[in-house]
Design a protein around this nucleic acid. Structure first.
Length: 939
RNA sequence: GCCCGGAUGGUGAAAUCGGUAGACACGCAGGACUUAAAAUCCUGUUGACAGUAAUGUCAGUGCGGGUUCGAGCCCCGCUCCGGGCACCA
């Protein structure tokens, strides 16, 4: 009998399906363990070899936990709302629901071939009304709550209203967007619209003016992803920032808790640092400057109140609400021109481009609160509207950006911090002594900060303030393929909650947004107008809505009365292990932690944090091959392609655009000398007939050398490698082992199949430990030798360690080593081989089942097997040879009983005479014993 | 630009506690079996030098410094590559 993976795997997959081997009961005597994968967006390109990397690792871990006696929840679903399906619909007219369903079907087929232990009865799809009904429900809860900073939790908005009715705004301590003060009597007198406006200032889901990337020529709102260098990627048209009423989520209310929660979870330090930086907590002071005519207050936030005497100008963000008011008649033209320039720059451009210094003077002045001096007020794009108060006090002597700005525009620079005691200090570093600063003179920066704040508070012009870089999440998208808001507006424009859920997406055949930038939903009048005479919100929710709580739905996926039952969530609690890409570090992971804390405040989940442990798998990268195409056509009107080694003759990089080509066309792809040969060019032309009459400039070898780089595997680069072919050729056990063998789980690496034969070889050799090449059953019942047991138990130890630390690549090496050892020992003992099968079961489940059965077991190894326990007694050695080193240099070796090295030194059992010879009269300073390594004598 | 990672033979990598660098594989070279090829098996495989050989010596973990008896690992300064930067998911 030969090893035929395809037959074995097909057989066991049917067995698992028929016997519902992986069905997970919601209650059990066993302890629970929840292993979660980040669910995929089902893209049109299908599953590529990168997806399974994490799925295989989590499946291995889930099976390991199952074999270790846990009731394991290991589900899979689809994050099915998203932009690509909508764009596809715009191009082809195929309804997003149809293309999504098709893609989901293909993903399922591909996933099924990899032998995962998912409980498919628990699958979810964020685009199904049964699911998004509850996403809408959670949105309503967010809308109906505010964040009470005294209670430090979300409370019902009715509670806020009660407080306004009784005491007005003064008594309220709550997260809000801007300051407002009113009495209980004022509140009673407010109109319905005014009340709504006030409440919007507090709701956790609220509506405000936000900016979108607007492309007039395309007549559509664009994602940042669709913009390159300030222009639309498609067509290259200008993009401007356009204000629109948008929904937002008040994630900032949870900033401190999101920060604190990081202390309680097991994420990598790198990821925690990224989240901390994203939240961006900074301590300082908030204070205001009065304008010259004392009519307006300009609020600023600063981390350096100690440098107040160095303020020589102020800068407002171009979007700041006071800009129009402060602009004088003489400066109007200049400010308008500047605002127009800024309109064309995305936030990303503004942050990335620090070389270009730009700004304009409003013509107005503010009064310095301490010195009473006039301070000119400027606007500039380096001040961001979304951070702090959208205005800064500029201290050019002690802030690099302010300094560059002052130098560029010839503004005063007043030195206030003397850093001469610190020769290596940099501008802006919080060290030095204050000078030219009145009551702060002579103080160290650290002491001056609290003193300055004290003064601000005494003068009643400012106070201590903690500021966060995190800003509220924009929650509106002008798209069709997302969750509709359960919101409508009545004749007076008042916001109403639609309580009949789900609010379903209407049918549609034109997916183009409307001319004024609204979602295509705005065109469906029958849907927009409700029977009660209200108009529905036509924006939809962003991709992160559905993915912010899906892991809770898996606990109770069919529940029709609630997102999940109390019983289910009390049993499953939270996710024990979450596996997914690091690219979600600050997006999805932040939003879902926020939603979870909100649900915790509502008493709907028992834990503060959704994910106990997070492991980020690296990205499987692809080779991106591109050919150089001259931007200008030649005189004959032909497109010209030039071999990469000859582009200098045609004007160099600048003159060319890069055109990605299918990697299959490229010879030696990924190598230095990657190129299209004549055959490759023929394939290219067959693929892109529109270039049939293009001119090709080859090199001397008649090749068109390509530009080869490593990057994302993506449909747009034509470099997607599909796992199906690999699985068909080698079987999924082999594929699973190979993906793990490829390297550390957390590293990114380019896909490369050249090593898979080694894994295939291992599996065949393993099979030969059970069956002779003639098909004879070789397994014997005899008691194993000490050597055989040592080999097995060493492997158990290594593999267990590997599993616990997600070093799965070394596990595969350990298997190969054990297999080689058993072959050299000619070992076919049942005890050893059974242990091997159990060890291997999480990694190669099909083969393990087959061999488990062959060893005489009736039922699935995942029902009857247990992960082997390591017995250290089998590894004990009588003695170990220690190198004896002097100052690290090896001088001799001694054999000492295991564990006795320390004693040996103490009792001077080492031949001191010999040591004296090596150290030539020097005295011994230290004797270092490195356990199981060496004895080092330091002289 | 800012934030977070990474760099070890021809290649993927191992060395998870600062302690014998290169485990385990791929590839390559040589050999066995074979009419031949494939498959399989065996041997070798960081570099330089010395030696008939066993082996020995020196150098070596992107670059330049530092700490330490000892550094792939820790510290300082770079280079290159990857990920993220709030509407891709």
């Amino acid at each position: 009998m030969e090893y035929r993976p395809q037959e074995i795997e097909e057989k066991w997959r049917s067995y698992w399906k028929e016997n519902k081997t992986y069905q997970t009961p919601t209650t059990s005597d066993k302890p629970k363990y929840y292993v979660l994968d980040m669910f995929p967006y089902p893209s049109g390109a299908g599953l590529h070899v990168g997806h399974p990397l994490g799925y295989i690792a989590s499946d291995i871990f889930a099976r390991y936990k199952r074999l270790s006696g846990f009731n394991v929840l290991h589900p899979m679903g689809y994050d099915a709302f998203g932009l690509p399906a909508e764009q596809y619909a715009i191009q082809t007219g195929v309804h997003p629901a149809a293309s999504t369903a098709e893609n989901v079907g293909r993903y399922r087929q591909q996933l099924d071939k990899l032998g995962f232990s998912y409980d498919w009865d628990r699958s979810v799809n964020t685009s199904s009304p049964e699911y998004y009904k509850w996403t809408q429900q959670i949105f309503i809860w967010l809308f109906d709550h505010y964040y009470d900073t005294a209670a430090d939790k979300a409370l019902p908005i009715t509670e806020l209203i009660r407080q306004f009715e009784e005491k007005g705004s003064a008594a309220v301590a709550a997260a809000h967007s801007h300051e407002e003060h009113f009495s209980a009597a004022d509140w009673q007198g407010f109109s319905a619209q005014e009340k709504e406006e006030v409440l919007m200032n507090y709701r956790l889901a609220y509506r405000k003016v936000g900016y979108v990337n607007w492309c007039e020529e395309l007549g559509t709102v664009l994602a940042n992803d669709e913009i390159k260098d300030g222009r639309s990627e498609r067509g290259g048209f200008p993009v401007v920032q356009k204000p629109m009423m948008q929904w937002a989520l008040r994630i900032t209310a949870y900033a401190q808790r999101l920060l604190d929660g990081l202390e309680t979870v097991d994420f990598s330090e790198a990821l925690k640092t990224q989240q901390r930086n994203w939240i961006g907590r900074s301590e300082g002071a908030e204070l205001f400057f009065l304008t010259e005519n004392k009519a307006d207050k300009i609020e600023v936030f600063t981390t350096r109140p100690d440098t107040l005497f160095g303020v020589s100008f102020m800068v407002l963000a171009p979007e700041h609400e006071l800009v129009q008011k402060l602009t004088t008649a003489e400066q109007k033209e200049e400010i308008e021109a500047y605002l127009h320039y800024v309109e064309g720059r995305s936030e990303r451009d503004r942050m990335m481009d620090v070389k270009t210094i730009s700004g304009a003077f409003t013509g107005s002045y503010a009064i310095h609160p301490f010195t009473g001096k006039k301070v000119p007020i400027w606007i500039s794009e380096y001040v961001l509207a979304g951070y702090g108060t959208g205005a800064i006090m500029a201290v050019p002597s002690d802030d690099e950006r302010d300094q560059r700005f002052a130098q560029h525009f010839g503004l005063d620079i007043l030195p206030v911090v003397d850093q001469s005691d610190y020769p290596h200090a940099e501008v802006g570093q919080k060290i030095g002594k204050l000078i030219n600063s009145d009551f702060l003179n002579g103080l160290e920066v650290k002491a001056a900060i609290p003193k300055a704040i004290e003064k601000l508070e005494a003068l009643n012009i400012g106070q201590r303030k903690v500021n966060f870089r995190l800003h509220d999440a924009n929650f509106s998208r002008q798209r069709y393929w997302g969750e509709p808001f359960p919101i409508s507006y009545d004749a007076e424009g008042l916001t109403q909650v639609e309580t009949a859920l789900p609010v379903e997406l209407p049918e549609l055949d034109n997916f183009q947004p409307t001319a004024d930038g609204h979602s295509p939903l705005a065109r469906v009048e029958s849907w927009v107008n409700t029977p009660e005479g209200r108009k529905r919100e036509t924006d939809t929710m962003p991709g992160f809505a559905g993915s912010s709580w899906y892991f809770l739905r898996y606990m109770d996926p069919q529940n029709e009365n609630a997102p999940f039952s109390e019983e289910a969530v009390n049993y499953w609690q939270d996710v024990d292990l979450y596996l997914g890409g690091a690219e979600h570090a600050v997006g999805h992971l932040m939003y879902s932690r926020f939603w979870h804390k909100f649900l915790y405040d509502l008493g709907k989940v028992p834990s503060q944090e959704p994910y106990k442990k997070l492991v980020n798998q690296g990205m499987i990268q692809g080779i991106i091959e591109q050919i150089y195409m001259l931007k200008e056509k030649n005189e004959a009107g032909q497109t010209v392609f030039v071999s990469a080694d000859r582009i200098a003759e045609y004007g160099g990089e600048e003159a060319f655009a890069l055109l990605p080509v299918h990697i299959d066309f490229v010879s030696n792809y990924g190598q230095e000398d990657s190129h299209l040969d004549q055959e490759g060019v023929a394939k290219f032309l067959a693929w892109r007939p529109s270039y049939a009459n293009a001119e090709f400039i080859y090199n001397e070898a008649e090749q068109l050398v390509t530009d080869s780089e490593i990057g994302k595997m993506s449909k747009r680069y034509y470099n997607v490698v599909n796992p199906d072919d690999m699985v068909a050729l080698y079987g999924s056990d082999c594929f699973r082992l190979y993906e793990m063998f490829l390297g550390p789980l957390e590293d990114s690496k380019p896909w490369n199949t050249s090593g898979i034969s080694g894994v295939a070889k291992f599996l065949r050799r393993l099979w030969l430990l059970f069956y002779s090449p003639e098909g004879e059953w070789l397994v014997q019942k005899e008691t194993p030798t000490a050597k055989e047991r040592k080999a097995l138990h060493h492997c158990i130890k290594q593999v267990q360690q590997g599993l616990e630390s997600f070093s799965l690549n070394t596990c595969v090496s350990d298997f190969m080593k054990l297999s080689n050892e058993l072959r050299d020992l000619n070992c076919h003992k049942a005890e050893i081989l059974e242990g091997f099968v159990l060890l291997l079961a999480p990694f190669a489940p099909h083969l393990a089942e087959e061999l488990w059965q062959a060893l005489g077991h009736q039922e699935s190894v995942f029902k009857t097997g247990a992960f082997p326990s390591f017995n250290p007694a089998y590894l004990v050695e009588d003695s170990i040879v220690y190198p004896v080193c002097v100052n690290g240099k090896k001088r001799a070796a001694i054999e000492l009983a295991n564990g006795l090295a320390q004693e040996a030194i103490k009792e001077q059992a080492l031949a001191l005479e010999d040591i004296q010879k090596w150290i030539e009269g020097k005295t011994i300073r230290k004797v270092i014993v490195v356990p199981k390594r060496m004895v080092n004598i330091v002289v």
